[in-house]
Design a protein around this nucleic acid. Structure first.
Length: 500
RNA sequence: GGGCUCGUAGCUCAGUCAGGCAGAGCGGUGGGCUCUUAACCCAUUCGCCAAGGGUUCAAAUCCCUUCGGGCCCGCCA
């Protein structure tokens, strides 16, 4: 058995045996908020990109925003006004917030910002710009000339029926602005124009350039040749037999004389207990949400550590474990996950989550420092802690399970009324046993010792401590926990509860 | 109906392409002063590799069949 290699390196090995220069293409339709399921596409590409670069190959990562795709319907997050825009290209629809250049940009901008944080730096293309520049004109003419051949490829490979008036080119109606309601009736190769009519009643002749796009299956194949794509990650929906990769392969080979890119097929990300993420079902966790609760490196790690072919079951309540896992990791996935801004953490995230909740004033970093100092952490990286405190706070307020949440009670919890005589006297003994510089571990041992002295089980004694301070039956490891509390507060509270 | 993918320790998964002694992390367990109670350190347990068959000197790995999970084939990644 050889060393286990990371999947991205395996892909890199494979493709570099053929050639050393590669363009990895990724792309997403910005029709709604871009979630971490979408992110897998780009991150998969980025992992391959880094693997290639590390191997000394020449690699380029590109990202194409499908801005010419039509708005399919009025999504739940849109106002009813958008019904008039259904069928128009995303780049030609007003922005929902009114501040962005158009609808597509509204979702694209935050996504591109996230990419920067994630240290992913692709060459970004927007489909409507590529088409407006005329980059796709030759490919469009070739497609129109080979209309029948393409139609039969699609029919044979995908077994779907192609309507008699089908055209590989979708025109944007100059009157109503829709791309889904037009029918091409002819074209002029020399003038580079098409004739069309629209359901809205309009008909006319328009230049190819900037007035439409190739249909998806043809567009994809054309894109490979136009942009020189050699590697492309795509979702399993396109990978199915007779799907768009199959037709694309045939179209690219027979019409454009270009070999299809090496495919990297990836699976969906599921949200624990809720199924696959999808903007249309509303089951989503956005990239922005994730970057609030974890460092970008960890978000990369979540996706990169798993082979593309396996679905990822993502459970936000266990992000705490994910982060600890990342901090302990020392493998290739970890290497591929680090960003420029990576900072190692000197304090386990789990402990930070505990310490934060102990700190009397979570908004004041000094109180946290005091807690950390009392629990034996000194000389850590300030910046790293600062960032993670932010993550921990957000995680606690959005995703943390109840078992991870506690609050040091300002007043004596009423539940202490139910403590037994033995528990009470135990609490008093603990209070008097705590003196001077008693170490955390000794405080912990003290609980056991006292339990024995007063004749209750250790379990009962611990519960008494937690009830007294947290009004819960369990909590962070008791001695260490008590040691990190303000000493006067602790002693007063123990005595108070002990006296009953 | 067609196709894909996964099934390996309690959990999350490497390892399967290129057959060569079954692995890691977490958890659990034990210890770290007489000690079940979320943070530290040390040690350690754990497997009919989903099932059956085949090929082979040799199979988690290749081939066939079965079972089970998750999907894709309506331009959702």
């Amino acid at each position: 058995m050889g060393e286990s290699r990371h999947w991205a390196d395996v892909v890199s090995d494979r493709v570099t045996t053929v050639k050393k220069k590669h363009t990895i293409a990724t792309g997403i339709t910005p029709s709604g908020e871009i979630h971490i399921g979408n992110l897998r596409e780009v991150l998969t590409g980025d992992a391959v990109y880094r693997a290639l670069s590390d191997s000394g190959a020449e690699a380029e990562l590109i990202y194409i925003a499908d801005t010419l795709d039509p708005l399919r319907r009025v999504y739940p997050f849109l106002s009813e006004d958008y019904s008039e825009h259904v069928g128009k290209p995303l780049s030609a629809i007003p922005c929902p917030c009114g501040d962005c250049a158009n609808y597509a940009e509204h979702f694209l901008e935050p996504f591109l910002e996230s990419l920067e944080l994630l240290d992913i730096d692709p060459v970004v293309y927007r489909a409507h710009e590529l088409y407006a520049n005329g980059d796709f004109v030759p490919a469009t003419i070739a497609a129109l000339l080979n209309r029948d051949k393409i139609a039969s490829i699609i029919e044979n490979v995908s077994h779907r029926e192609i309507p008699a008036d089908w055209s590989p080119f979708n025109v944007i109606c100059e009157s109503c602005g829709r791309i889904t309601t037009t029918v091409v009736s002819g074209f002029d190769e020399a003038k580079k124009t098409v004739d069309y009519s629209c359901e809205c009643g309009y008909s006319g002749t328009t230049p190819l350039e900037g007035h439409g796009k190739l249909t998806w299956r043809v567009d994809w194949a054309a894109r490979w040749g136009v942009l020189g794509v050699t590697i492309e990650p795509f979702g399993k929906d396109h990978a199915t037999k007779g799907g768009s990769y199959d037709t694309g392969t045939k179209i690219s080979g027979e019409i454009y004389g270009y070999a299809p890119p090496y495919p990297v097929i990836y699976e969906w990300i599921h949200l624990k207990g809720k199924g696959a993420m999808s903007s249309s079902t509303g089951v989503t966790v956005t990239i922005t949400d994730m970057l609030r609760v974890m460092p970008p490196d960890v978000l990369r790690y979540l996706i990169i550590r798993t082979k593309p072919g396996k679905h990822i079951d993502f459970d936000p309540s266990r992000i705490i474990d994910l982060i600890d896992d990342f901090d302990r990791a020392n493998n290739r996935a970890f290497e591929l996950s680090r960003t420029k801004t990576f900072l190692p953490s000197d304090i386990p995230f789990t402990h930070l989550v505990t310490a934060m909740q102990i700190a009397s004033d979570p908004t004041d970093i000094d109180t946290l420092h005091e807690v950390l100092r009392r629990s034996g952490y000194d000389g850590y990286n300030e910046e790293s802690v600062k960032r993670r405190v932010e993550n921990a706070r957000n995680w606690l307020s959005s995703y943390a399970p109840d078992s991870a949440i506690f609050e040091v009670q300002r007043e004596l919890p009423t539940a202490t009324k139910n403590l037994s005589e033995e528990q009470r006297s135990g609490l008093l003994r603990i209070a008097s046993g705590i003196s001077g510089d008693l170490a955390a571990k000794d405080m912990h041992d003290l609980v056991y010792a006292v339990a024995e002295e007063v004749g209750v089980s250790a379990s009962k004694m611990f519960q008494a401590v937690y009830t007294t301070i947290l009004e819960k039956d369990s909590g962070p490891r008791a001695g260490y926990f008590m040691a990190s509390l303000d000493r006067d507060f602790l002693l007063n509270r123990l005595k108070e509860a002990g006296r009953g």
